[in-house]
Amino acid sequence: MDFKTLLCVMTDADVSVPSLSQAMALAEAHDAHLDVLALGVDRSQTGYFYGGADALLMQEMLKRAHDEAEEIRKTAEAKLSNSGLRWACDIGVAQIADLGRHVASRARFSDLVILPKPYGKNCGTELEPTIEAALFEGQAPVLMVPESVAPMTTPKTVCLAWNESAEALVAARAALPFLKMAETVHVIVVDPPSHGPNRSDPGGLLSQYLARHGVNVQVDVLSKTQPRVSDVLLRHATDTDADLMVMGAYGHSRFREAILGGATRNMLEHAPLPVFLAH
């Protein structure tokens, strides 16, 4: 499979520009069609109004979201107009509680969704549910793009987090176009179970599967020398000078990760490199 339909959801004219640049670079590299959704979000409430609320207040909030969507559309079209790419740009307005439906309806028919890092300075509350909607309701892989990273088209070194889970396998399969282009793919196994079915060859079956697709694979078995698995993964990505991290998303429930933390949440917060996620 190749990436032939890309989706970039923009909910902020400034924060989303790096992800749009990344999406444009991938569209050119893969000869893909790029869809852009300029989405104005009403962040002021949770999908309903208390009894007796003035209808003018609702109208004003939705008008503000629509104006924001128009501003985002103009920003996107200014970058796309002379790019030579095949693209389309639609606008939409959503209350934050209904955000998932709008994102998922477009993500379902996309090969890859390119989105900005959801946590950090100037990041709105809508960015996290946008990623979750693409992964869960849209059933599409997501490429999370940090703000300070230059657009990536052909990764030389990829780190693939492997823990035998269904999510990790889905991510590995979905990321094959990137993995086949890379010079080296490091399959990272952190503290493999001593009594598991693959204890004598952790990551071996995945490496065999990838190698048959022409991927140059190297298995790296690491000890959990830091409190969080995500810290071990990020340190190894730095040590190998990786261009891309591939991992399964939300092996635990989203609620558990929101309260107690988890590899996905921590990676989305701290990753300095693009992260390819699938669930």
Rank of each mutant, 00 (worst) to 15 (best):
G203V: 00
S165Q: 01
R173S: 07
F178Y: 12
P192L: 02
V189S: 02
I188F: 03
S148E: 10
A182M: 07
V189G: 03
C159G: 11
A175R: 00
G138T: 03
V145E: 01
P146F: 08
A168D: 12
V170C: 09
D201Y: 10
K156Q: 15
M144W: 02
L143Q: 08
S207L: 08
P192I: 02
D201A: 09
P202V: 01
G138N: 04
L143E: 07
V185N: 11
A172C: 07
S165H: 05
L160C: 09
V190C: 05
T153L: 03
V185P: 07
K156H: 13
A174R: 15
G203T: 01
G138M: 03
A182H: 13
L160R: 05
V145T: 12
T157H: 15
A171H: 06
P202Q: 00
R173Y: 05
P151N: 08
E147C: 06
V190G: 00
V145G: 03
G203C: 06
P151H: 09
I188D: 00
E164L: 11
L206V: 12
V145F: 10
L176F: 02
A161H: 05
H195E: 15
D201V: 08
Y209I: 13
L169F: 14
C159P: 02
D191M: 03
V170K: 14
V190Y: 01
E164Q: 13
A166C: 08
E183L: 06
A161Q: 00
Q208K: 14
P151W: 06
P197S: 13
V158M: 02
A168F: 07
S207R: 14
H195R: 15
L205E: 15
A168T: 06
L206H: 05
A171P: 02
A166S: 13
T184Q: 14
V187P: 01
Q139A: 14
P177W: 03
L176P: 07
A174Y: 05
E137V: 11
T154G: 04
G138C: 11
E167W: 11
D191H: 06
L143I: 08
S207D: 12
V185Y: 10
R199K: 14
S165F: 08
P146R: 03
S200I: 10
V145L: 09
F136G: 07
P202W: 00
L205S: 13
G196E: 06
T154C: 08
A175K: 02
P155C: 12
P146I: 05
P192Y: 00
V185I: 11
L205D: 15
V189Q: 00
G204S: 01
A140I: 05
E183G: 07
E164H: 15
E147S: 10
P151I: 14
A140R: 04
T157C: 09
P177E: 03
E167F: 09
D201F: 07
L210W: 15
P151Q: 12
K180H: 12
M144A: 11
L169V: 09
V142W: 12
A168G: 08
C159D: 10
M181G: 13
T184V: 14
T153S: 13
H186T: 04
K180D: 11
L205P: 05
H195S: 14
V185A: 10
